[in-house]
Design a protein around this nucleic acid. Structure first.
Lengths: 126, 126
DNA sequence: GATAGTAGGTACCTACAGGAAAGTATTGGG
DNA sequence: CCCAATACTTTCCTGTAGGTACCTACTATC
């Protein structure tokens, strides 16, 4: 063996995955990255299926991780703006790679159809 | 507006994220990609915290999606081998980008410390 | 004084993912 | 006759993420 593998996770990219790809973070980061600054309700409307509670949770988490920046304007009614940070912007090539790979989704679809037809055709799985 | 956004998800990379970054899939794909063919128990030992039930579930899903290839050898006791498919291997640049971004994790750590100290210091969040 | 509008917070509840543990089929070996 | 080994499968159980619904503070406007 070249060097020992940490017993828990043989996967060094797991921390980044947890950070960037936990539930709802991708749509939020994408929205902020693609369409710039957003107010709370604007995000809520854009990601129409998210609930305000969860949106708050995710935004706090992303702010804590330094991926988004929150700006509070003490007006009446209050106004809060969220934008992507410099660190968050550094995820752009990653997102681009992901978007590029999307082209392979049709191949995934074909694989699924093939697999399903094989299963239904009475091919017993030993 | 240049073109309409699908109301549900303003995030075109969501499908890929669901496919590649659902729970446990990253360690499995990483192991198969880095260390080649594995038998069931070998994967079980390498990803020591996964249970056989879940490992089976994920492997089935990955096989159906065409990302891994399962080979059954009808011996006694039976032998099964899993390896990454060509399609799975096409994820390599994505994983490389992720691994590259890992360098920014210390900056995330700093952001967290800064955030936490600001919160504890009595800075009330309006 | 009722209402609207913003940016959340809280209490409660449920569904589902995932964990634990035992079972299954097969056959060679002691 | 029982065990070992492999690759799961099945049953049962629990924790927690996330959803629903309602509540807060603040002021301007009607």
């Amino acid at each position: 063996m070249t060097h020992d593998i940490p017993p828990e996770q043989a996967c060094p990219i797991a921390p980044v995955v947890d950070l960037v790809f936990s539930r709802w973070t991708t749509p939020i980061l994408w929205a902020l990255h693609e369409y710039g600054r957003h107010r709370f309700v604007e995000l809520e409307r854009r990601i129409s299926t998210i609930t305000p509670k969860v949106l708050t949770q995710r935004l706090r988490q992303l702010e804590r991780d330094g991926l988004v920046v929150r700006t509070y304007h003490p007006e009446v009614p209050p106004r809060v703006e969220y934008e992507i940070s410099e660190l968050g912007r550094s995820l752009a090539p990653l997102f681009a790679t992901l978007a590029g790979w999307s082209g392979n989704l049709k191949e995934v679809e074909r694989a699924r159809e093939s697999y399903d037809s094989r299963q239904h055709a009475g091919g017993r799985r030993p």
